[in-house]
Amino acid sequence: MAENVQHAIAQKKDEPAGANEWEPKIIGFLCNWCSYAGADLCGVSRYQYPTNVRAVRVMCSTRISPHIVLELFTAGADGILVGGCHLNDCHYITGNFYTEKRLRLMKKLLEDAGIEPQRLRLEWVSASEGEKFSKIVTEFTEQVKKLGPSKVKKDAALKTRASAADGASQTFRLRALVGKELGLEKTGNVYGQKLDQTELEKLIDAATKDEFERSLILELSKQKARSVKELGQIMDVPTDKVLRHIVVLRQKNMIAMEHPDGLTPTYKAIEIGGEQ
């Protein structure tokens, strides 16, 4: 048997590989029922695409929380592709509607952090769209190549901002807002008032900015105790706003005030023992 195989291997000729060309690392989260099946069909049909995407199978795209995506960007992913069933086709009825809402939050946070939101892409691929899958991967790989390698690994400040975005994505407020977003649009709040989508998005965007800034204050003050002025300068946020954030963080017992040499007060994040 081995001979057969060796023979077959020997017959195939490689095209010359560009030896030192940078190749982006792209993670693809694909839902089991549609997009993973579409990728399977793409293979069965032998549609070719670049080798950069590494697929992770999940049961539903709705599984992908903002935290997962943002942690991977913090870890240096060049691009992330999320694939789900077409809207209304979700194997789990409404899962992908939530995915759509979450992707919006993720992109907003990436923007706040200073990472190109184009590195994150959501696509609906059905189980019969094999060719579409190859096109998406080809296009997305090109797009990420144009953006160049993730700067997170080399730029410590950017990495801090990415961590802050990840932190913000895990706050109760943002998760609860995004979790309830669809319900608020469709069935209304506790008073039965349906909320307008654009209004709601404005509200969430404002909350996202706040939470990102607070999270960034925590990240920066984890490294060392810092003054309001210093934080304001690093973050490029007016000091009065930084102070307002600090008041909130102190109420939540997440940051402590210190008085080095009895001069300007500085703040240090309170780290909860052992927990990530």
Partner: peptide
Amino acid sequence: LDKTFPTNDCSICILAP
């Protein structure tokens, strides 16, 4: 079938499982 009415669900996606 490509899609199914009235939801325009992808036919093979729901049938294959």
